[in-house]
Nucleic acid binder design. Sequence first.
DNA 1: TTGTGTTTTACGACCTCC
DNA 2: GGAGGTCGTAAAACACAA
Length: 288
Amino acid sequence: MDSGRFFFNHPSSCHGSNVMLFGSGDSVFRGPRSAMNMEETLKRRPFYTSQEDLFNEEYYDEQSPEKKRRLSPEQWLNFIYNWEIKVRLLEKSFEEENKLEPERKSQLASKLGLQPRQVAVWFQNRRARWKTKQLERDYDHLKSAYDSLLSEYDSIRKDNDKLKNEVIFLTEKVQAKELAGAPISGQKSEPLQAEAPHVKAEDRQSTGSGGSAVVDVEEGPHLVDSGDSYFLNATTYPAGCVGPVDGVHSEEDDGSDDGRSYFSDVLAAAEGQNNGEGDQTLGWWVWS
DNA sequence: TTGTGTTTTACGACCTCC
DNA sequence: GGAGGTCGTAAAACACAA
């Protein structure tokens, strides 16, 4: 619960405070500490309360606001209980459905002894808080995905460098052979693979990063027939490094008010790109 | 003690939907 | 046009660091 801090702070921290409480039914209001007069405060912040209020020494009773009255420990406990029940009920209701239909609003208001307007405002603010948290979670997810892709990128790059070195080595080998003795026309040369040093067959066939091939098509002989670089191929290149930023949707845009991420469609698309390529880069994503 | 950041309630402006 | 939504912000209070 967001307001949990109100319940567990030590009451001694408010000794000497000039805060006073104004009770109305089971609502307790924080009294004016500033220049704002009592009426204004009561009108403006009728819902507000805190644990410190609960342990404060005095408050004004609804029936006789001019008289101070000391709350017994039992009364305070009752107040804590009632207030906590209210917030818990609102939270529970919010978890079930974060939008508030008129009927539910009226029910909650009468159940909690609040104005329907207060319930509506509470839900509005609660949605705003939820959205802020959701954005933070989305940011964390995206950052994690970015870091993961960056790491994968580095790995693929290293593989690529390794393969390029292999190409250079083999090219030099072939050239040396040709210089040593001109090959008979039509003679089949030895498989290059057999002479490649320090490179295992698995390395050439698979890098463990979804496949890899020599990128550079301009220098040296090609070991791949297609001539296309897998590395630069958009269908294979891990998605999500840049795209999602441009594709961010607001809550209103995608109607993602159902607990899903604001970036869900973008990430789902990115994940779809990876599917079928044996790459589960975005497998971390879970609906929150 | 003071300044700053955070949390919560509340409101007004504006937008969307029926 | 009204109801209800989001967004931005004010106000109050607290926590915490300097």
